[in-house]
Simulated scan of single mutants.
Amino acid sequence: MESLLASARSWVKEHAGGQALHLLKTEEWLKRINPAASEAMLLAALTHDMERAFPGPDSPKQDPSRGPDDPLYLQAHSERSARIVGDFLHEQQAPPELTEEVMALIRVHEVGGWPAADWVQAADSLSFLEVNVQPFLNMMSNARTGWSPENVRAKFSWMYTRIRLPEARRWASPLYQQALERLQQQKDFFETGR
Rank of each mutant, 00 (worst) to 15 (best):
L180I: 06
E27D: 10
L21I: 04
K61D: 09
A168H: 06
A116H: 15
T99N: 09
N142A: 09
E79A: 09
E100R: 12
Q19P: 00
W147P: 00
R169W: 11
W171E: 14
D118V: 10
H77R: 08
G146F: 02
L137W: 04
M50V: 00
L74A: 13
Q178G: 11
A179S: 09
R182H: 03
A44D: 10
H22W: 12
A143F: 02
T47M: 14
P55R: 03
L98M: 07
S65N: 08
R153D: 06
K25M: 15
R153S: 05
A154T: 00
K13N: 14
A53V: 10
A36Y: 00
I84Q: 11
Q62F: 15
E97N: 03
R83H: 14
W11S: 02
V131L: 02
E14Q: 14
A104V: 01
E100H: 04
S59H: 03
F156L: 13
Y73W: 03
G56H: 04
V152S: 02
W11Q: 06
P95S: 13
Q185P: 00
Y73K: 03
L98W: 00
R9K: 11
P174S: 03
P135T: 01
Q184N: 07
A154Q: 00
E2Y: 00
L180E: 08
A16S: 14
D49R: 01
A123G: 10
A104G: 04
A116Q: 12
E51H: 14
N132P: 01
Q19F: 14
A8R: 06
E191S: 04
A117E: 08
K25R: 15
P57V: 06
G67E: 03
G112H: 03
Q185E: 11
A154N: 01
V120N: 13
K155A: 13
T145C: 01
T47G: 02
N151F: 13
S148M: 02
A40W: 05
L30D: 01
L5S: 04
L183M: 02
R83M: 12
Q92S: 02
R162H: 02
V85P: 00
H22Q: 04
V131T: 10
A8Y: 10
A53L: 09
S127T: 03
P71K: 12
I106W: 10
R83W: 15
E91V: 06
S3V: 09
G56T: 05
T192K: 11
R32I: 13
S141G: 05
N151W: 07
V131K: 01
S10E: 15
A172T: 01
K13F: 14
R194Q: 12
K61E: 13
R107C: 08
T99I: 07
A76C: 04
A82S: 08
V120E: 15
Y73N: 07
S127W: 10
T26F: 06
A172K: 04
